[in-house]
């Protein structure tokens, strides 16, 4: 019986394993004690996090709840996260369709202390067709009324969100009101410039159809710049593409002589690769910006940088001049 993995040994091993992982996590200084004077903001998703950062500069402490690389729909908040929201001055989330858990957290806080901000107020929401076709000409299914939650990909929406956030921050922290509004105005101009760059660059493309070998996430973007959009699967990440949808994408690539298929960053590119390979093309990455990789996050990537990177790949993929 020597050398066998007995139960006590397995448990011991597991405990050691957990312990060794927990030690560094516990001893890590929690980014010092939050400075009492600064406004504490907690955001659910990356775009909101970056907007707050752009508006508040170093006058706010902003925290992103969703860890890098974790799927927004399936995130499970830790006790620490709830605590952080309860200690914050502002808690900002996108839309209850995107982060169901954020709405749950929002209900649990003391409204006198923490101001809850629904950043989507006043934005233009798109219905996400149940089927992966942008114009929804065919395939409106039972869940056709569902809302596509990637609303920041329409830069006009992004601007409304920035304004909502700036107003909320100004109300919560009147001392810095001028700074917030000034920064917000500058950032709105950045978004205008970004919008103009997209409009110019995408006006002169050989291809007008964006094919995505994954989930339908870029509907706001394609609608704004008048592109056609076909994705292999619906907006909901749990939905599976059917063989016919995949075959249709392959045919479309072949028929229109398309060389590139787009895939979402972070998500496994296997589906897109399978379709692209079948049609003799290759895969380009796009980000819907709701989440970023750990590496990018630690590097301090911004929403605008992500969208500029997207534009470069769009120009390649759509064969723009």
């Amino acid at each position: 019986m020597k050398g066998q993995l007995t139960m006590p040994r397995i448990f011991l091993l597991t405990l050691l394993l957990i312990g060794s992982l927990m030690l560094p996590a516990c001893s890590k200084p929690e980014s010092a004690a939050p400075t009492a004077s600064k406004l504490q903001v907690v955001t659910s998703l990356f775009p909101l996090y970056d907007f707050v950062r752009q508006i508040g500069g170093d006058q706010v402490e902003v925290t992103l709840l969703l860890p890098p690389g974790v799927e927004a729909h399936s995130f499970d908040p830790k006790p620490d996260d709830i605590l952080r929201v309860n200690r914050a001055g502002l808690f900002i989330f996108t839309h209850k369709a995107m982060e169901v858990w954020a709405a749950t957290i929002a209900q649990s806080v003391d409204p006198a202390r923490v101001t809850i901000v629904d950043a989507s107020v006043g934005t233009q929401l798109r219905q996400s067709s149940g089927h992966a076709d942008e114009h929804g000409a065919h395939g409106h299914t039972a869940n056709a009324a569902a809302i596509d939650p990637h609303l920041w990909l329409d830069f006009a929406n992004a601007q409304v969100m920035v304004e909502n956030i700036a107003q909320a921050m100004a109300r919560k922290d009147p001392a810095q009101r001028d700074l917030y509004l000034r920064n917000a105005a500058a950032y709105l101009a950045r978004l205008d410039a970004l919008d103009a760059a997209y409009r110019t660059a995408l006006a002169l493309c050989k291809q007008r159809t964006l094919l995505q070998g994954g989930h339908f996430a870029l509907g706001y973007l394609t609608a704004r710049y008048d592109l056609k959009y076909h994705a292999a699967a619906a907006v909901n990440p749990e939905a599976e593409p059917t063989a016919a949808t995949m075959a249709a994408l392959v045919q479309q690539m072949r028929r229109n002589n398309l060389h590139y298929l787009f895939s979402e960053e972070l998500v496994s590119p296997k589906l897109a690769e399978t379709i692209a390979k079948e049609a003799g093309g290759s895969v380009l990455l796009l980000s819907a910006a709701h989440n970023v990789s750990k590496t990018d996050f630690e590097r301090g990537i911004t929403f605008v940088e992500i969208m500029e990177r997207n534009l470069k790949n769009l120009q390649i993929g759509l064969e723009c001049r």
């Binding site: 890098p68 690389g69 974790v70 972070l266 750990k294």
Partner: peptide
């Protein structure tokens, strides 16, 4: 626990 301790990944684990 591990997913939480790691402070995030570079890919979406589930996909």
């Amino acid at each position: 626990i591990l997913a939480s301790l790691s402070g995030g990944y570079n890919v979406d684990l589930f996909s």
